[in-house]
Design a protein around this nucleic acid. Sequence first.
DNA 1: CGAACTCGGATAATTTCTGTCCGAGACAAT
DNA 2: ATTGTCTCGGACAGAAATTATCCGAGTTCG
Lengths: 173, 173
Amino acid sequence: MKLSGGVEWALHCCVVLTTATEPVPAARLAELHDVSGSYLAKQLQALSRAGLVTSVQGKAGGYVLTRAPELITMLDVVTAVDGAQPAFVCTEIRQRGPLATPQEACTRPCPVARAMAGADAAWRAALEAISIADLARGVDDDYGPTALAGIRAWLGGPAEGDTASGGQQLNGR
Amino acid sequence: MKLSGGVEWALHCCVVLTTATEPVPAARLAELHDVSGSYLAKQLQALSRAGLVTSVQGKAGGYVLTRAPELITMLDVVTAVDGAQPAFVCTEIRQRGPLATPQEACTRPCPVARAMAGADAAWRAALEAISIADLARGVDDDYGPTALAGIRAWLGGPAEGDTASGGQQLNGR
DNA sequence: CGAACTCGGATAATTTCTGTCCGAGACAAT
DNA sequence: ATTGTCTCGGACAGAAATTATCCGAGTTCG
């Protein structure tokens, strides 16, 4: 049982987007977190498909949160990036083998599947109870308000690493 | 986020082992569930390593539960087969990039990791609350006591598919 | 009207999971 | 005591999913 690694990136990106009021390009987010820009783009696309962020194209384009951070739960982000299907998928092995249960008796999921579904529901409920705004508040509580303010300033500031060559590479980490 | 498919097999095998009082070979369990015997052996080995079942070698060998079914939780089986590490692993991306948080300020996990750990704890708690005995009781409630009794009888009965050739193939499904 | 910058989806490389095989060890019968 | 057969245990390929990357379509600004 492993969760897609991109989930972590997506969650942190959402917290960062909380501070910004203008669209933030994917390349800028990748540089801030020092991760692969090409791969981060995939996660942001997933968020866009799920309707959590809006993509603005063009010269001053980027990504913006569609709703207030209080209305975006962690479950929304996890579901968007990692997929909606539950961790456990019942193969219905009770209907196989020499002592297979007749199909007419299988109106409800088997006890194993029911227990797994309950555990999955508990997991999702825990994630649904925490919003992106809660995460941002947690960052403030841990490192003080200066941390998010610094990020906000950095996002609006000039692109780092800009030497004589105006070209801005997207590759690498 | 996907759970190893072998978890389902292992759980059902534990429920089946509840009915048996003598060692049950892996090949017999595979035939009962109509699954790959070679791969099921891997899952049972994991259960053996975790100390949930005891392996008896020799002619009348097989697997037996080490404790009473009430003392084996679903979490035990899931942990044994799928591994103990949590679904979410924090990469500590807060310590990377131009605005990296200094290492001295990272005494506790970041808010994202804390929330994920909490969700994982809820998931594990739900699985820990259900024992193998509870699953067996659920089977009785769904299909009546005849189901498990029939399995018990089949386990002690003769090997199916035994024609003139005494050889018993382990391969195939 | 041109140019540059953005996202979006289609395309390879890597890792994990799935499935299989054969050898070492142990019990039972002879 | 010895032989034979049956069992588990770990080492070995194949397949699927994940990770990572590139280039084209569309849009906005100058």
